[in-house]
Amino acid sequence: MNITTQEKPAELAICARQLNLWYGTFQALFEVDLDIRKGMITSLIGPSGCGKSTFLRSINRINERLGYVRINGRVELFDQDIYAPEVELVQLRKQVGMVFQRPNPLPTSIRENILFGHKLHNKRSSRAEQDEIVESALQQVLLWEKVKDRLHHKATTLSLEEQQKLCIARLLPVKPRILLMDEPCSALDPKGTEAVEELIWELRGRYSILVVTHNMAQARRASEECIFMLMGKVVEHTPTHQMFVTPAQQETADYIEGRYG
């Protein structure tokens, strides 16, 4: 057995190589090379329209629903090429959960929201098993105590903050390994933002998390590594504290100091 040394390359959750993506004739990603480490929170920052969401959506291959998207390059999750022909999208999306800007709970009860993914991917399960799944998912997002007495209420009766936590919770029963979050706090008030940030921090280690954010302070507080993108290209990828203290590139410094939109 080897002793883990500093030199040993870190295990990767996401590895993109020379990733190009076009919407029709418009190129949105240019030769993106990224190594995103397992079990970490990595934040993805950059001005609006720079391709952050596009990158996220090419990790669970949801972009392909648009008929006019063309991709080349390579994306590997845990060393597996996800654009290989034998990849089953359902299996891929089980492993890669996505959280959106606006909380989008389904118009059913809290309980059914949590069980939705589970029921999609599993044939039958006993009532007791389901109860356990619901409790464990809600525990993980720190919502259990608050909603355990109203699991049958509509999910839309929750506050936005709670809805967003629910949207995170409903990904967990299918045991994803990667969580993608596209500006998960931008529809929330400062208190809600803080609560969801805390939750994301809490999930660190158990999941590999990639968070897109517009909020510098959030990236700085709540991530371990940080990626800065500009016009479809990766400009810089460093530990967060380093990026905010000594950015390597002039563009990064300009953006962090608020000189871009």
Partner: peptide, 21 residues
Amino acid sequence: HAFREACWNMGATRWQTIRRV
């Protein structure tokens, strides 16, 4: 549309999305 997105991103097929949501 957000409901459909939510389903697709959880790995639901089109028909599962239609039937359940």
